[in-house]
Design a binder for these strands. Structure first.
Length: 263
DNA sequence: TTATATGTTCGATA
DNA sequence: TTATCGAACATATA
């Protein structure tokens, strides 16, 4: 679920669910403690009795400002999600972390695969610097985007998924962009023209903006959106004679329309 | 049983 | 030292 648009929707959900409510208690539900990158006692201490003042996002990373100045950091890995529940019996499946508020509601962080992260950080910028995370995709200039890619001797798709120069592109968005611009995902980034790189930047921003506007409900996306055709042998309406193929690029499942995306 | 999954990190290698 | 590659992480579903 969680690329830039999905995390932006989760950011808004977090705001609605949690802002300015007192945190009465917190719960931890991962026996191996994989998702808690800060000791549980420290997370509990940072939250209980306090409230959230704001919620920020950089790329796929979410940060909620605690009234005491520190921030709760959430990353959603491959399967992370948020959900509110009102009573213990309806606790969402795969809840790993939960915060109960003074109005009786509880916000759950779900994550079946446990690739996600729950931690306490000083502030978003410090975490961004420490983890070498680039600027948010929607804020990077076309020039900086181009500069980050034009000397990379790796597959363009792999370069797009690298979060260190600009953050937010994930697997489906990368496929979506490359399809729209008509570039093969294994094309070496450095071989692309300035024009192509600028086009990729524009596509990335447009895809994210539309996906956010549609609340990331794929079914509501424009009918030419590639994400809804990412299946072997499917046919995109604009290419009725070119069956969609699956490759593995940089270890990630990758879908292309061979007729439009050639090496 | 095998393959796949919307992400990141770390060790090996060049 | 820097860039790149590929395996690993933990779990669910088809």
């Amino acid at each position: 679920m969680p690329e830039l648009p999905e995390v932006e929707i989760l950011r808004r959900y977090f705001e609605e669910a949690a802002l300015n409510k007192t945190i009465e208690n917190v719960g931890f539900f991962d026996h191996l403690n994989k998702v808690f990158k800060t000791p549980k006692t420290e997370i509990e201490q940072a939250l209980v009795g306090n409230s959230f003042k704001s919620v920020a996002r950089i790329g796929k990373y979410l940060f909620a400002e605690i009234s005491t100045e520190k921030w709760l950091h959430l990353h959603f890995g491959m399967t992370g999600n948020l959900a509110i529940y009102m009573d213990e019996a309806s606790k969402p499946k795969y809840t790993r972390f939960a915060m109960q508020f003074n109005d009786g509601s509880t916000l759950a962080f779900q994550d079946s695969r446990k690739f996600g992260v729950v931690s306490i950080v000083e502030n978003p910028e410090a975490h961004q610097k420490e983890k070498n995370i680039g600027v948010d995709l929607l804020k990077v200039t076309p020039e900086a985007f181009t500069k980050a890619l034009q000397h990379r001797k790796i597959a363009i798709k792999t370069a797009l998924l690298d979060q260190k120069h600009f953050a937010g592109i994930g697997n489906w968005i990368a496929d979506e962009m490359l399809f729209n611009v008509g570039i093969h995902p294994e094309k070496e980034a450095a071989e692309l023209s300035d024009k192509q790189l600028k086009a990729l930047h524009k596509e990335a921003c447009e895809i994210c903006t539309i996906a956010i506007k549609k609340d990331t409900h794929y079914g509501d996306f424009p009918k030419d959106f590639f994400v809804n055709y990412r299946k072997i042998d499917a046919l995109h309406p604009e290419h009725p004679n070119s069956k969609i193929e699956r490759l593995v690029v940089g270890g990630r499942g990758t879908f292309i329309v061979p007729e439009k995306q050639k090496l």
